[in-house]
Nucleic acid binder design. Structure first.
Lengths: 240, 240
DNA sequence: ACCTGAACACCGTTCAAGT
DNA sequence: ACCTGAACACCGTTCAAGT
């Protein structure tokens, strides 16, 4: 057997391991996609790959690391949209795309909460948003802050979208709002009291509209129109 | 014994129950405050109130309901700030206050994700934000949407603040960004590549500043200056 | 190096039984 | 009505041992 000779190559044809990281991660991802993050457990993955729970710990340090690894490649499943040339429109289009993609893979939210962005193939969205913001006259610092603000907003929207959907699926659980308002609150909370009867119709919420509005506010911070990087003290121009 | 006579009063002096909902909820809240939401379990609460896990299920339908009940009264611990008269400043002040209070009770975030706002004493913040937005000329629907947008943003910021803090406490876990950028990405991701070396300094992020910017954008949607409710078709004026 | 098995210290919740 | 005890079907992770 040639196994001994091939041992020095870290990942050669010889010495097939019973387990390999790709299978572990792919299995974890499948479980999450089919049954949600809550269904993922080390024991479950071990069972499905035909091994024992502790064998997995040779490939990942703990469950959180496995969770983070399931992120890789997810965004590549979605086609990259054509973006408009106008930087403001481009920024909004990229942000709406980010929202729309994540709405289709809601489990990703739970994983993103654990750590940073680990899917390299999603970085183009940050690139486009930051680049658009700078093209609109923001400094690099402002552009990065703008990206964060947009991300926080998109994330928050998606979390409560999922939360509302969960609650709607369990209608016997008591809804607290606006039912909890009583007559006595009218003096303290006049607006809410007045709006309560037509609360349903007031729930219309268009993410693209909100995004356009907040982007307007964020871009209005620009010191001058267009071309910003020059104004930034110590800014290095990106090569392009 | 007078117990029989007092039985019809639902909550009289007689028939002291071994368990009562207040103690259960207070114990749950104490555990969460001291050790985080992850430390809360039905078994743990039962042990601390000197009972068995299943006894709790006579007072709450499940763990989620108990979690939701821990929210009540939390916001009352924080002094209500003086708000400026100018509606735009009032909106921003209320939003910053919401952010600042929640930053001090981070466990609340996890519970809010489960359902709606259940702490009645926090409703004044929504009241002030919606009222300010309408005073700035937004329709009721726009004002409610503005509240939601601000809430999503605040929530998102707090989640990733907590997340970054957790990651910072575990420095041996690999940080993915911007270390994962390679030379080859320079062509695809020129801005990120250019910004990567000074990523640290670009992380300055002022929540009040961002809030002010997005509020500007949201309020710029107003159809006219000032006094809005009249323009709203079918709007009922709050009594005030 | 890679993997197993047993064990530790837990979970939420159902069910049947007690008072 | 209120509570207990046993049981079911799970968890993540440590540790010592095997090959």
């Amino acid at each position: 057997m040639a196994e001994g000779e091939e041992k020095k190559t870290k990942r050669g044809a010889g010495r097939p391991r019973r387990l390999d990281p790709e299978t572990i991660v792919a299995t974890a991802r499948r479980i999450i996609e089919e049954e949600g993050v809550a269904a993922l457990s080390m024991r479950r993955v071990a069972k499905e790959v035909g091994s024992t729970p502790m064998a997995l710990y040779h490939y990942v340090r703990d469950k959180d690391e496995l969770l983070l690894l399931t992120l890789a490649g997810v965004s590549a499943q979605f086609p990259r949209p054509e973006l408009p040339a106008d930087p403001r429109a481009r920024l909004i289009t990229a942000a709406v795309h980010m929202h729309q993609v994540l709405a289709q893979v809601p489990w990703v939210l739970k994983v993103l909460e654990l750590g940073g962005l680990t899917d390299k193939q999603a970085l183009w969205i940050a690139e486009e948003i930051i680049d658009s913001a700078m093209a609109c006259g923001l400094s690099a610092g402002q552009a990065v802050a703008t990206y964060r603000t947009i991300w926080y907003f998109v994330y928050g929207d998606l979390v409560f979208r999922a939360s509302a959907a969960r609650r709607a699926a369990e209608p016997d659980r008591k809804q607290h709002w606006p039912a909890m308002l009583t007559e006595e609150d009218a003096a303290e909370l006049p607006r809410l009291t007045a709006l309560a009867p037509r609360w349903e119709e007031l729930q219309r919420y268009d993410i693209a509209e909100q995004l356009a509005a907040i982007v307007d506010g964020l871009l209005s911070r620009a010191g001058g129109a267009g071309r910003a990087a020059e104004r930034e003290p110590g800014a290095q121009e990106p090569h392009m």
